[in-house]
Design a protein around this nucleic acid. Structure first.
Lengths: 253, 253
DNA sequence: AAAATAGTGTCTATGAGACACTATAGT
DNA sequence: ACTATAGTGTCTCATAGACACTATTTT
């Protein structure tokens, strides 16, 4: 067992709480650094994609890393994650949820860094510009395991060339995919990966991309329509070369 | 948005990674304190119970708190949680899993404290002494919400007298109950709340206690026996005043 | 024998998978 | 008219709930 500091500072038990707080020395103990890292996930082209940034400094110079940053002393973990994502993706209003906290002592060679990982979801349409190119740099996620087995994943660029991930970010990404797969069935997060109006086929495609397997069309349609989470817009697809499908909207009730 | 330090230290980009690491100053930034808090859960007497300690110091003097402690600079989060639990419960070998990380800036009035919460499970038999009394101090958890709604819970002593919880520990406890309820169906964690050999009725009682509702006996038996996770020991209950039930053992395969 | 729970067999309702069929857009 | 996909109707199978019934222990 490692040698650690005592849990509580030397006490002066007969003071009031107010006196105690005023005399409390917050710098008395060694403390780890705390960061947030954000996994922004997109479903497109039959795969999951995530926002990565190329490291311009040591360590892991040239590797690809999740957008992240230190947690400010006055901000909550959620707002730190929101801030990091707004800065790196240039957009706001994503679905954002805490994922897991990674704290292996040797996960960063500089010093002890504990990172609270978050994952964010958005429709791929929000990140594609007019020219059909990504507006930001996205990497394709390759999941080497089935179901909810979990474990590290690998990433490639749009041409399928492998990218090297920094630190333990392959594990963090894998945890995000595992979480997404696990919550898909019983939650409504799949809708976060779609634009406001979508067809049942698009919804099924998102489910299939996330799960990495095909689904039964009939059963999927029935279940979704019976779920109460779909609201018909009355509109239909346009210009699709076949019978246009009805467009639905996500309904929370 | 809070005013925070820059994300990276002043750079010297033309050095090697080794040089960089040697010159890196880990103390250059303000850092929060990081603790682990552990929710040890027991199912007994038709309720969930958890290990709490009475605070002997400010703040929240006299309140009840989850066992916790600072994370040492050289230990992993998991081992910090294991260490805290071994010290407070005097036992080892519990099921232990990371729960959630709580980091509201004002959750501890002393200074910024981010806590990585864990939950642990064990059979109530392990914590009951020869005299049928708890060997350690356990509080009864009262869950004011149904299903997996989530939210804070309250706690009482064994006589039903309310206990005041410190900091945001009511929320942490609620998150633990919510997680346990959520994982009960699709995981094997219920077995962690039972002794090595148990009857189907005991298994059902644990499920019902965790979920806070009754379950269909026939369906429960069928599903459990079909799950492949039960191994008959060939033994039966003894001295029970009615037909003794078969004893099973948890089988991972 | 009575009491109390263990354990079995069977019927029914529900939801998933499979498949055949009809509908409707673009070309 | 042809093609491709949308959408409907129906059959079958697996599983949960309900309920009746038998089995086995202690008192």
């Amino acid at each position: 067992m490692p040698d650690i500091k005592p849990e509580t500072p030397p006490e002066t038990p007969n003071t009031t709480e107010k006196d105690f707080l005023e005399s409390y020395d917050a710098t008395a103990f060694d403390r780890p650094s705390v960061t947030v890292d954000v996994v922004l996930l997109i479903a497109a082209k039959d795969a999951l994609w995530t926002l990565l940034v190329e490291r311009q400094e040591h360590p892991c110079l040239g590797c690809w890393a999740l957008p992240g940053g230190f947690v400010g002393l006055e901000e909550s973990l959620d707002s730190a994650a929101t801030r990091v994502l707004a800065k790196k993706a240039g957009l706001e209003g994503f679905f954002l949820e805490q994922l897991y906290t990674f704290g292996r002592p040797d996960r960063d060679p500089r010093t002890r860094v504990i990172t609270v990982a978050y994952y964010a979801l958005t429709a791929s349409e929000r990140l594609i510009g007019q020219n059909r190119e990504w507006k930001i740099e996205l990497a394709r996620i390759v999941v080497p395991w089935d179901g909810e087995a979990g474990g590290a994943v690998t990433v490639t660029d749009a041409d399928g060339e492998p990218l090297e991930l920094a630190f333990d970010h392959a594990e963090i990404l894998g945890t995000a995919v595992q979480r997404l797969r696990g919550k898909l069935d019983y939650s409504q997060i799949a809708f976060q990966l779609l634009p406001e109006k979508f067809t049942l086929r698009q919804l099924q495609a998102v489910h299939e991309t996330v799960l990495g397997r095909t689904l039964n069309k009939d059963s999927f349609r029935r279940r979704q329509l019976a779920s109460g989470h779909l609201e018909a817009t009355g509109e239909r697809e346009r210009q699709v070369g076949y019978r246009p499908a009805a467009l639905y909207r996500f309904a929370k009730a």
